[in-house]
Design a protein around this nucleic acid. Structure first.
Lengths: 142, 142
DNA sequence: GTTCCTGCAAAAGATTTGCAGTGAC
DNA sequence: GTCACTGCAAATCTTTTGCAGGAAC
């Protein structure tokens, strides 16, 4: 199985990037994430694991990965941008955000994907991506 | 016809707020908007119209209106929070964002609303609101 | 007169940029 | 050796907070 990390490192190389240590550390960390993470979370996790990477480098790597469509960015309304792995299979999920405790939970729904695809075709737009965020109260908070 | 402005001013009064000049100016301006606006845009528009309101007051009023569910906030990925009128009828729309020129275009789709309503019921969550943002290229940019 | 409302200035947070040194090729 | 990559510090931008004076009731 080709992991996201391997895929991303290959795409970076193809795009002409050199193989920098900070970038590799960020990509390897991202590959272990199941849901969207913020730049701050990436920085903190790397520092905690003993592989400190400068904040600016984290932001630069995230920006490069997004430009290569290896990550999608999304905003859940907490003032920070989160980044989510873009799997080459096209597989993706959306998010539930608890407005009381801030928990972000991923969900998938095939019916929703089909509807979004139909709606996208009706638009006078070339639609590349869609962000869907449901806000409410999670079961613990309601 | 009860305008959003009248509705909002009444709700603010019911909630115990006094009738401050800055707040009224912000509410009256918001009532003329057809799509989501940022705090900076509200501040600039008021200043341009000769009724300057302090930046902090704009943010405070937007926060109060959101708490009373007279506004919804949304984020289109440009680093600022935008606020959209919450009409008492429940009528609302979603957004197309051109990632090249930044244009934000509203759209409505009844099929999408029905699907979202069904999906929301399946969630282990009390869903109050949903944000849907389609990203892509507008007809001028593609 | 009391309590809320406002504007200003300062603070706080997230993200970006400038720059000099280090490392990849 | 050249040019990209990195980390640090400073700058920028959005949003929030502290505070003192003014306004609503």
């Amino acid at each position: 199985m080709a992991t996201w990390t391997e895929h991303a490192l290959r795409r970076l190389e193809e795009a002409g990037y050199r193989r920098g240590g900070a970038r590799t550390a960020v990509v390897e960390h991202l590959g272990t994430q199941a849901c969207a993470v913020s730049a701050h979370e990436v920085e903190a996790a790397l520092r905690a694991s003993g592989r400190t990477v400068g904040r600016a480098s984290v932001y630069r790597v995230l920006e490069q990965l997004e430009a290569l469509k290896l990550l999608w960015s999304l905003d859940v309304g907490d003032g920070t941008t989160r980044y989510e792995l873009a799997h080459p299979s096209g597989e993706h999920h959306h998010h539930l955000v608890c407005d009381t405790c801030g928990a972000v939970t991923p969900f998938e729904d095939a019916e929703l994907e089909r509807t979004i695809a139909r709606v996208s075709e009706r638009m006078p737009f070339t639609v590349d991506e869609h962000d869907i965020v449901l806000h409410g109260q999670c079961s613990s908070c309601s």
